[in-house]
Design a binder for these strands. Structure first.
Lengths: 228, 228
DNA sequence: CAGTGAAAAATTTGATCATATTCTGCCCGC
DNA sequence: GCGGGCAGAATATGATCAAATTTTTCACTG
């Protein structure tokens, strides 16, 4: 007898069962985003299909999407790896992030409400807790969540998607940063940002985000310098 | 019947036999880029596989990449269409293009040589010829080629790729613009750009590109206003 | 005799397809 | 208008073929 496809099998929740290729994509995506993959690591279709218990076609699709996102790199021959960041790449990422994310902050400040500031503060509090507990995965996820929540508020989906995609490029290097510095020395400009938002200060928000981006990228740059 | 399999191209060997999924991707990409697809048009896997004489898997992969590029839109159900631009989307594209492409121009100006200015002038001359002959496809291709050549010169592959991707989003609207205005009223700032580049004037190049972008996008905006 | 290097076999992995299954939207009878 | 098929399209699998890498073999030189 055939098993019914395990759709929405989680405890009665009516969660729309996502297509396999989408699940694989999300899975890989978050692994890359939160530093669970090492730069330079090879990615094989059949290996992933085996590991995830999926067929080759959905895995292949997920990989193609990630390549298009810049999260994976298709080498001339037909090998796929997690790309290694170099200084030149990082410098470009810094420029683009500053341009887009500062504008997103500006626009978010234009649409803030008290409920939004509260929600963001909540995430930031959880983030601080994760830092003080040395919870690296928690820190990474919450930091990402903080920024994405901000960008969603900007009412500019194309710009937000663009910014989102950039995070995939430095994700794999974050593990290295945290391995090097730990969580204690991870300063951010979230407090500045929150007060600017609460005051509806567009430029203040833009400056806070720019500084936050600069700080984060400088830490990655520091690690890159060491390795070369 | 259909000859898809180029098993071993004996005689030639010049032609690099690209994978089918890559061919399909390039094909679809240029159709979208040069306005050969109408906004809102549906894209079906089986339809394309039939039309191109390819299997479903490569077509599927190409479509996923294009979706990730923002060139196609995956609607919640499993329909894929060519997205329709609205004013809000266009406004975001303008901002991002201005930020990134002006910086690319700045960096290109930093690396110019006489040979590069000559090559760009050549493309621009061909472009003018296409305009005066009313050759719309030629105009679109040469204009794209002009900008991509400039961005390649900037030695900033990530930023260039980012800019490249954005073109896919307004490509489908270009046909409408040309249908509306013809080729005669397609002014550009390429001459300004060329003199700035020849003089090594970074800011001049940045300004020229910014104005070029503004002009092009305003024409699209004008068409969008009419349709709404 | 040991070590080097290249050629060939073996293995791993990617690319493609044909086919089976599942889902969506639509149409028809009630 | 509404619910149950029905057609068609998307999703997913495994088989098969091709390409690239790795390993093995083996002849040749120092």
């Amino acid at each position: 007898m055939k098993l019914v496809k395990n759709t929405a099998d989680q405890a009665g929740a009516h969660i729309r069962s996502l297509p396999v290729h989408e699940q694989v994509y999300q899975d890989l995506r978050s692994r890359i985003l939160f530093g669970e993959t090492a730069p330079g690591q090879a990615v094989t279709i059949q290996g992933l299909a085996e590991a995830l218990g999926a067929g080759m076609t959905p895995v292949r699709e997920a990989i193609r999407r990630l390549i298009s996102d810049g999260a994976l790199l298709f080498q001339g021959n037909r090998r796929v790896i997690v790309p290694t960041l170099d200084i030149a790449a990082l410098e470009q990422l810094v420029f683009i992030r500053k341009s887009i994310e500062s504008e997103l902050a500006r626009r978010a400040a234009r649409h803030v409400g008290q409920d939004f500031v509260d929600r963001l503060s909540e995430i930031d509090a959880a983030l601080d807790a994760a830092i003080s507990q040395g919870d690296v995965p928690g820190y990474l996820r919450l930091n990402y969540q903080f920024h994405m929540a901000l960008y969603a508020q900007a009412q500019a989906p194309i710009m937000a998607e663009q910014a989102d995609r950039l995070w995939l490029r430095f994700g794999p290097s974050l593990r290295v940063v945290c391995g090097r510095f730990g969580t204690q020395n991870l300063p951010d400009r979230h407090k500045d940002l929150l007060s600017a938002l609460a005051a509806g200060d567009e430029e203040g928000a833009a400056i806070a985000v720019t500084q936050d981006v600069t700080q984060g990228m400088e830490q990655i740059a520091a690690v890159l310098e060491i390795k070369e």
